[in-house]
Amino acid sequence: MTTTPRPDTNQNLKTFEKRVWLAVILIIGIVLMTRFFTVKEMGRYYAVDTGSGLEAATAVDKEAGVAFVDVDRSIGIWISALMTIGIFSFLYKDNPYYKVCEALFIGISAAYWMVLSFWTTIIPNLFGKLFPTWTQSWAIPGLPTAHEHDWWLYFVPLILGIMLLMRLFPKYGWMARWPLAFIIGTTAGLRLIGFLEADFWGQIINTINSFPSYASMIEAVNEGNYSELFKLSNAIIVVVSILACLVYFFFSIEHKGAVAKVARLGIFVLMVTFGAGFGFTVMGRIALLAIRLEFLIYDWLALDIVGG
């Protein structure tokens, strides 16, 4: 029989947990500050002014006395470390520290895309085509100022763009349908051709091309070399596997009898495919974690435990 903990026990546990965390954070803080003041590399970005900009200082620069601690970038390293730990703190439990990091990420990345789009597309590719002289006079001095042939056609994406922005106003939101329709239409057109050529027709051609020629097989066998036969057997396995998978995907007919057996073979092939995909995915994820930990260890804490 289980008993429900009394509410004040839960409260006590939470208070205790908060106090433990506070103590842990305090201790870690003291350790970090001690290390910061004793180890000159920790949490500091050493830069050298080469005369054409700041670069990371090497050990030689430090010995030569031309390196200095760049305050902006050093603060940046600390902020990065705190952001990294903030995100990792979510693994323990959702907490305000993580939420602050998340809020910062959302705000900064949204602004980043806006600025990116403004300076890489709207200015050079829209205003630069419609009003090249004006754009050249302040934003892109290298832009040719002569209007292109049919330059006036660029008023179409300008108008469509303004209509797209009308989505922000409920009263005029219906205007956004036209540019959205254009985007959907062009995407559909682009994708149709791309997938037809590369993913449909291209794959059929690749499968056929993977078969070795009869002449090369005979020649290889005559030389006592069975690699071409191996290639042939692999090609046959590929064809059979592809057909089996396609039978499995065909849900318009009932998977019974022989169709069921072939479909099951298809499932087996797909399972091996997904297993391979999983293996590669794991590798990818671990590498992402490795680079963040490397940053914390080498760039922030300047830990350099010798080994390996």
Partner: peptide, 15 residues
């Protein structure tokens, strides 16, 4: 990336 790597094998080596 690892996530994409296994998916690109059908394109090798022709494309």
């Amino acid at each position: 990336t690892g996530v994409q790597a296994s998916l690109m094998y059908p394109y090798i080596p022709q494309q």
